[in-house]
Amino acid sequence: MEYMLTRLEWLVGPDKIQTLKNTSVALFGVGGVGGGALEALVRAGVGRIVLIDGDSIAPSNLNRQMITTHDTIGERKVEVAKARALSINPDVVIDTHDIMYTEESYPGFIQSLHVDFVIDAIDMVTAKLNIIEVCQRESIPVISCMGGGNRFYPEKLMIADINKSHTCPLARVMRRELKKRGI
């Protein structure tokens, strides 16, 4: 019998589908990069996703953020993202935190989420650094997205350790600051 994940199951097998269903991911930022990440997580059958974003949808988001429509202008991003995720996969558990994360404002926050993975898709350098620091200390795998804006050749993007990044001004700052922190 066919269901939402039938074709993915053909590709990866039923055991991997169950692994995805049992996986919990925290997603910091549901804008341009985060909205695409959310879409992929939901469509892959990840069982629990924690959304963290303290912003609302603006007209300038329409051309670059997957979760936005004219009807959602002014609404809170985490609520719109949650509704979109549930419209794709009603079985996914979505927790939302309508906050702009900083360690100073929310100490111990990441640890309290009890997740298997973290995706950092935010712009604020201090928060990005803290997310990476906490994840490393707590042995939580983290993917931190660097500067993809104003790029014309997405095929040149790469997934790698930040030490292997080049030409991205944000990654340059992150490398320098992480090195200062012994990471």
Rank of each mutant, 00 (worst) to 15 (best):
T69C: 10
T69A: 12
H70K: 14
H70G: 11
D71A: 14
T72S: 09
I73M: 02
G74Q: 09
E75N: 10
E75F: 05
E75A: 07
E75C: 05
E75L: 06
V78N: 00
E79W: 09
A81V: 15
A81H: 08
A81G: 07
K82A: 01
A83G: 01
A83E: 01
A85Q: 03
A85F: 06
A85H: 04
S87K: 10
S87N: 05
I88R: 08
N89A: 09
N89L: 13
N89I: 00
N89K: 10
P90C: 13
P90D: 10
D91Y: 14
D91R: 15
D91H: 13
V93G: 08
V93L: 14
I94L: 12
I94M: 12
I94D: 06
D95P: 01
D95L: 10
D95E: 10
T96N: 10
H97I: 07
H97C: 06
I99R: 02
M100Y: 12
T102V: 09
E103D: 14
E103A: 12
S105V: 03
Y106T: 00
P107I: 00
P107R: 08
G108L: 08
G108R: 12
F109S: 04
F109G: 02
I110V: 14
I110R: 06
I110M: 05
S112N: 07
S112Q: 05
L113T: 11
L113H: 05
V115F: 01
V115W: 00
D116A: 09
D116R: 12
D116K: 13
F117Q: 04
V118Q: 03
V118N: 03
I119A: 15
I119M: 14
D120A: 12
A121L: 11
A121F: 06
A121E: 06
I122F: 14
I122W: 05
D123M: 10
V125G: 10
V125N: 12
T126P: 04
T126G: 13
T126E: 15
T126K: 15
K128F: 04
K128W: 04
K128G: 02
L129S: 00
L129W: 01
L129D: 00
N130M: 05
N130L: 03
I131M: 10
I132Q: 03
I132K: 01
E133F: 08
E133W: 01
E133Q: 12
V134T: 05
C135Q: 02
C135Y: 00
Q136A: 15
E138W: 04
E138V: 11
I140S: 08
P141Q: 12
P141G: 15
V142I: 08
V142C: 12
V142S: 04
V142W: 02
I143C: 04
I143E: 00
I143V: 15
S144Y: 02
G147A: 05
G147K: 04
G148S: 14
G148N: 09
G148C: 11
G148F: 11
N150H: 11
F152R: 08
F152D: 09
Y153L: 11
P154Q: 03
L157V: 11
L157A: 15
L157F: 14
L157N: 09
L157W: 09
M158T: 01
M158W: 05
